[in-house]
Amino acid sequence: MARAVTSQRKAINTVVAWAIGLLIFFPILWTILTSFKTEAQAIASPPIFLNFDWTLENYAVVQERSNYMRFLWNSVIIAGGSTLLGVLIAVPAAWSMAFVPSKRTKDILLWMLSTKMLPAVGVLYPIYLLFIQLGLLDSRAGLVIVIMLINLPIIVWMLYTYFREIPGEILEAARMDGATLREEIIYVLTPMAIPGIASTILLNFILAWNEAFWTLNLTAVNAAPLTAFIASYSSPEGLFFAKLSAASTMAIAPILILGWFSQKQLVRGLTFGAVK
């Protein structure tokens, strides 16, 4: 809109928006701040905001006591593995649906979506049982598979909406230029779709990272990722505020950073292309 806005109006907008933005962000900010306090300062009354003795002690304690690195590594493996595996399976499928649509394409897409809407709790026991039978309980491989499967519809959908924006004529040009199907996908489609594939990976990595039903119910010790690590801090005592904060900060920091990069794609991915 090429309209001059009075700077007074803009100033009011700015103040109100920043105030609300900070209010919404405050719990995260407070957690990060608390993680640098001593336990005593963390529960001081009245609360201390900035003028406390900054310390990294909590981080050291958390790492030492609960082996943060192992949980982090599990999270990385589970989120990364499930995302990459999902993308590998989804790219060919999305190619097919975007460029060789048939009468059933729409039905298949909607059906895939419908599997995403199955309430997890409805199939909790069967999965639990299957995992025991297959020896997958509390294993990273098992979680990679399950989380890949629950996110696969989103991955296919996101890739599909990105691929659909690539004009089919370019792929036909490649075919006329003598490219085989494999060459067409490797040399033409994939490079053109890299931004879309990257955002798909990013968003699904975040979703997998934060998944907190299967990761809580199918893990015990070995494969437990950060979601379970945090749940284990479920202590009612205020004495652990600083350590809880440190643990929380470590669990969310990687994903907050990634998330900020993916805000635009978030909309598309989570609305299945219905809002752009």
């Binding site: 004529e169 370019i170 036909e172 040009a173 075919r175 006329m176 230029d177 490219a179 085989t180």
Partner: peptide, 17 residues
Amino acid sequence: PAKRGLAMVFQSYALYP
């Protein structure tokens, strides 16, 4: 198409961006 020995110029040019 790749084996027909024909070349095509498309309406949208279809260049590889």
